[in-house]
């Protein structure tokens, strides 16, 4: 089996949420090999709702914990091709991680494994079949800033 080359380059851009709040979008670039492999057909959205501080962002303590969780998830899913994190949205009282997944069963196992060191977090996980990567394409078209700009 050939290994997929997954880029680890990210862009960050401000956007406006549905309720007009500021949302910081962090998107992953150079994921075309994964997208075109046809294996990552399910989209999983992990949502962490928090009490928003000023501007809809998390307070310092929550932000630090989120950063640790973020690192744990990136570390877990960097090792093999079960899931790829493609976007992270923060703002309006919630943080969302968007994954494209090749196996929901394996993803669930790996996700629980990654978050074992933490107390149980207020996370909800939603999955949807999205073989065309519509969410990712929409995020990219609306928020990606070309390096040349």
């Amino acid at each position: 089996m050939t290994r997929l080359k997954i880029g680890d380059e990210w862009w960050t851009a401000p956007a406006e949420g549905e309720d007009g709040n500021l949302v910081i979008v962090t998107g992953r670039s150079k994921v075309e090999p994964v997208m075109e492999s046809g294996r990552f057909n399910d989209r999983v959205e992990v949502t962490w709702k928090y009490t928003p501080a000023e501007g809809g962002m998390p307070d310092d303590a929550t932000a630090r914990l989120m950063e640790q969780v973020d690192m744990a998830l990136r570390g877990e899913f960097a090792r093999d091709a079960v899931a790829v994190i493609t976007g992270i949205y923060t703002g309006g009282g919630e943080r969302n991680w968007v994954f494209y997944v090749s196996s929901l069963h394996s993803f669930q196992y790996r996700f629980n494994h990654a978050l074992e060191p933490f107390e149980t977090l207020p996370l909800t996980i939603y999955a949807e079949h999205d073989p065309e990567w519509n969410e990712y394409r929409e995020m990219r078209s609306q928020t990606e800033i070309d390096e040349g700009e």
Binding site: V44, F107, Q108, F111, N112, L115, L123, I125, Y126, A127
Partner: peptide, 8 residues
């Protein structure tokens, strides 16, 4: 594979 988080 049991854990506190489950895909809905």
């Amino acid at each position: 594979q049991r854990g506190p988080y489950a895909v809905m």
